[in-house]
Design a protein around this nucleic acid. Sequence first.
DNA 1: CGTACTATTGAGCGCTCTCAAAACCAGTGG
DNA 2: CCACTGGTTTTGAGAGCGCTCAATAGTACG
Lengths: 252, 252
Amino acid sequence: MSQDKIISFENIRVACRSCSLNALCLPMGLSSEDVEKLESIIKRSRPLHRGEHLFSGGERFQSLFVVKTGSVKTYTPSSEGGEQVLGFHLPGEIVGLDAIDQDFHSCSARVLETSAICEIPFRRLEELAATLPSLQHQLYRLLSKEIVEESELLMLLGKRNAEERLASFLVSLSQRFGKRGLSTTDFHLSMSRHEIGNYLGLAVETVSRLFTRFQDERLLDVDRKHVQVLDMARLETLAGVAQNRASRRESN
Amino acid sequence: MSQDKIISFENIRVACRSCSLNALCLPMGLSSEDVEKLESIIKRSRPLHRGEHLFSGGERFQSLFVVKTGSVKTYTPSSEGGEQVLGFHLPGEIVGLDAIDQDFHSCSARVLETSAICEIPFRRLEELAATLPSLQHQLYRLLSKEIVEESELLMLLGKRNAEERLASFLVSLSQRFGKRGLSTTDFHLSMSRHEIGNYLGLAVETVSRLFTRFQDERLLDVDRKHVQVLDMARLETLAGVAQNRASRRESN
DNA sequence: CGTACTATTGAGCGCTCTCAAAACCAGTGG
DNA sequence: CCACTGGTTTTGAGAGCGCTCAATAGTACG
């Protein structure tokens, strides 16, 4: 009977996938009516096309955004028209958490390809969370997770060489595609080499050379933006375990 | 009369400073009884001495910690005893936000000098927040702020050269000391050159050379761990505006 | 006052950036 | 279909920043 109201994690997962809210309700024990409440505040927008903005830096904070399909790039415009890429956001991931603090967006977000995006008005989410402890906790977790992931990236940029950075990047993409049920070894890069370089703190030329090298070493098969991982184990080794050089710098 | 219950921001500030909760209640509109509730869940621990841990990576998540006096370093131990410094936490700042997500600490935290630390059991804070919307919102902001600050650091590590990194580091310390009413131009570095280098992704030798250079250029006066900023304007320029080189890499 | 640690300074090298040019691709219009 | 244009990617050659190794100097502590 309570089974009527409490749906299982699996079902929630399915329900949420349909509304692209994995990120929010995946690990929660929300009853079906709670899920309905959550869904009721979500706006579904028309598909956005390459180059369109979810929001721009400085804009008033209204909503969080969940990527349903496609991909989003967040970046901070810098002087002279240059930009600093802060992250790439794939289906199931949330964009806009940076804006809660100051109540305006500290970065800009634009879609890299035609994408379906859900919008969650934050005020209403906050109100709802106040009445649903598990949702409240989930929100804290979400924010905390973002912090942990940024710490990891931070380490990547601080201590790893070019090879390790690109390997980590590819492994990360692979794992994130995997979470959504997509292929972990065969995927499309929606961002340019330049954007990858910008994100990883490398020059475009270095990124390009590395792709060629990885291909020569039979790690990858690269055709423009299509990547096929041929040797995931070795790629993961490069990404994670290959801290030999870096750990020397760490250790003192 | 409601003045009896609602204390001004200034008073809250004072009240909170005494309990080192600036970070939590500074921008809130909590009534005095609410502040009392908040204070009631805070544990004050005995002073910790250099090298003692607040928590270690992998430990069960129990509490957040607020630095009252002294300083704390967070880091992730890596293979072979090396470590990656994730951040330095000064008085008024919060440690432990990374642990909310997985319910265990993803990094370790140890004090760099004799420090007074307050402990806030997170479960109780969460319960309290559920009944106090402004506290709930403040918690969201706190987490969001951490995300924004990490993004900034991310940019630092990705795109800036050694000089710019150290300058940014010093400016950041200066500003954070300033927030606590301490001198912005005259302060003590509680961390070693090695830890600074580790944090900034630089070799110890590079950090040392830069300190010498900054001193030669009359930017700083450095005596061991005592730093005096002689030309803050120029230091800030180095830290922030000096994106000439970096922005070339950004712009494509 | 020796031991261990931390910081400084010097010399050389390697990774990655920079500059430059060519190849490739996508879209447009003749 | 092809030429034209703007953009992206690739490839090459050289230079410089910051790392590495090594040695010295300074500091803390028993």
